[in-house]
Design a protein around this nucleic acid. Structure first.
Length: 284
DNA sequence: AATTAGCTCAACCGCCTCCCT
DNA sequence: CAGGGAGGCGGTTGAGCTAAT
């Protein structure tokens, strides 16, 4: 007997989400908040698995998401955090405002990994590749020890600072001649420059990292979209809740196209005027 | 213009962890 | 304390897009 599937496979739709489905999910969560993902598809009128709904929301529809490639500063942060945390993408993502674990994982696998390899750095251990080869040769008769060195997960390890220094220094030193590596460098925006400047102004990089790595560190993500309606029972499904926060994140949506996200539904709601304005602006 | 190769990223799968009973 | 359910996480896949031939 295998494990019970997370949801009834029969009648459950798979594959890319349609604008209509997005619309339903957004509408439902705006109304009810995030609660009991397993019940969401049924209550929202979606033929989807609850997991699929959660994934769609957290990775794509969430209002506080940033879109677009990671900036250099964010990449640097990801590299440093990866050196300390390993493949704990959700932990890493929690330190980058507006970024999802999936996004970071994808970016790591498609961009950063290659970048590091090109720079002669092992993307797993964050050690120079030559050193890795030597270590592998030396410890070929002691597989366990080598295996351990590939898991820089323990935050209590005394070499934390060294790891940081190695990864930061290596990356920074070679980033100048990496202009052809990634489109990221070419997509420098005002925002990325702002972040770059901010990081440049922090003299003690390790202090910043310590702060970011603190478990008690306040969440970087703005919790303002944690709608109060979440506390309401599903029986009170009334008009969609659209407060100032909602309006502000909908404003952000103009960056990647309102229709892409099936926000046409909001024309029926009180912010239709806002969206009309946005649309007219984008057409001009 | 057609075909192929490579790349990206949204989405799925299955395991793990946490929490409730 | 054990068992079960739900959510969370990381690895992997594959459709769609772009570049190269």
């Amino acid at each position: 007997m295998g494990r019970q599937p997370c949801c009834d496979k029969l009648g459950v739709k798979k594959g890319p989400w349609t604008a209509e489905e997005d619309k339903k999910l957004i509408n439902f969560i705006l109304t009810n908040g995030q609660c009991c993902w397993r019940a969401v598809p049924k209550l929202a009128g979606l033929r989807r698995c609850g997991k699929s709904c959660r994934l769609r929301w957290t990775n794509y529809l969430r209002p506080d998401l940033k879109r677009g490639l990671l900036t250099e500063a964010e990449e640097q942060l990801v590299i440093d955090l990866h050196a300390r945390l390993g493949n704990r993408w959700s932990k890493i993502a929690s330190r980058l405002p507006g970024r999802t674990d999936n996004e970071i994982k994808n970016h790591w696998n498609t961009h950063i990994k290659k970048k590091l390899l090109k720079m002669g750095i092992d993307p797993v251990t964050h050690e120079p590749l030559e050193k890795e080869i030597k270590a592998a040769e030396k410890s070929s008769d002691d597989a366990e020890v080598f295996q351990e060195s590939k898991q820089p997960e323990n935050l209590e390890l005394p070499e934390i600072n060294n790891v940081s220094t190695i990864s930061s220094a290596n990356y920074s030193a070679s980033s100048e001649d990496q202009n052809s590596c990634s489109p990221t460098e070419n997509s420098s925006t005002d925002e990325s420059r702002l972040i770059d400047n901010t990081l440049d102004n922090i003299s003690d990089y390790d202090s910043l990292m310590s702060y970011l790595l603190e478990d008690e560190a306040p969440p970087v993500l703005d919790a303002s979209w944690d709608f109060p309606a979440a506390a309401q029972s599903f029986e009170n499904c009334g008009k969609p809740l659209l407060d100032e926060n909602c309006s502000s994140w909908l404003f952000d949506c103009q960056d990647f196209g309102i229709h892409d996200f099936g926000f046409d539904c909001f024309y029926d709601m009180e912010i239709s005027n806002v969206l009309n304005t946005l649309e007219m602006g984008s057409k001009e």
